[in-house]
Design a protein around this nucleic acid. Structure first.
Lengths: 150, 150
DNA sequence: TGATTCATGTCAGCATTCTGACATAGGTTG
DNA sequence: CAACCTATGTCAGAATGCTGACATGAATCA
């Protein structure tokens, strides 16, 4: 049966899903005591590194639809973590920015997330890490080649 | 700001999420015309390779909660893709098996999914693939070390 | 210039997954 | 044997993400 199927034990795809799942679980675990989850953290981190991103750009950066990100942004705005202008300076794009409160909240989360990433990479040499980096980039590139192309 | 944050451009964690997202999207795309999605496929593939798995075991194998898998199994059973005994042979565990219909449905999906995995690995040598395999295993192991340990 | 195409923000409805909780079976330990 | 602990299946409710759809602004093009 294994010759016929994908063979979960040796499938890189399955292992990729497993690793991603483990990473997400570990992140949720350290983020939960801070009243945060992975998607919220991703959004805030994106805004810290690239202030003024639009809803659609944030969605692409966090790997969710722009509809989902919109719901999240409305919540973050209501709770005072981010601000968006009432009117678009140009076109329909509403540039989003962190508030001081959002920045403070992100700081704690960043420490927690970084500790998870450090733990994940423990036991790997610098070379192994950059090899893994290149491999993942190659997979992403190959997966996107035959399709949309965004 | 990048010295202070996680730096999304060079973070292996972010890249891992990106790769997993790209893989999932590619799989959903080829599975959709077959009336299937990733979770359903994962469940059927697990059952093909390890017949008689319980609901909880399937949940762990597909990286969802046993509650979610239970919902899925009830749907698959209702639609005639899998069968479960009305009463547990031993304990509370209900061993699940594919029906002929489930097996037929899985065959087409397996072909589609395998083509995605082949595309993902195109451009990587055998050595690069096994290096990536080991790296991912290392990450998974390290992530799970400090925690639950299931 | 006018028409077309594309990207964006947003609303509504649906699907999926999760957390919380409960009862029950089996194994473990005193 | 009895008490405890763990794992399982399941129900209910909430959170989260998605698809479909629409109007609008910008860019492209004839």
């Amino acid at each position: 049966m294994n010759q016929d199927g994908v063979d979960l034990e040796t499938s890189l795809g399955y292992l990729l899903k497993e690793a991603s799942s483990a990473l997400r679980a570990a992140m949720e675990e350290v983020l939960r005591p801070l009243g945060m989850n992975v998607t919220r953290y991703s959004c805030l981190e994106l805004l810290a590194q690239r202030p003024g991103l639009s809803n659609s750009e944030l969605a692409r950066g966090a790997f969710v639809t722009r509809q989902s990100m919109n719901v999240l942004l409305q919540a973050l705005e209501r709770e005072g973590y981010v601000t968006r202008p009432a009117e678009a300076p140009v076109g329909k794009v509403l540039p989003t920015r962190l508030t001081p409160r959002g920045r403070r909240s992100l700081e704690k989360a960043t420490v927690a997330v970084r500790s998870v990433e450090v733990r994940m990479l423990a036991g790997m040499t610098e070379t192994e890490q950059s090899d893994a980096f290149r491999s993942l980039q190659s997979m992403i590139h190959s997966l996107r080649k035959g399709n949309d192309g965004a």
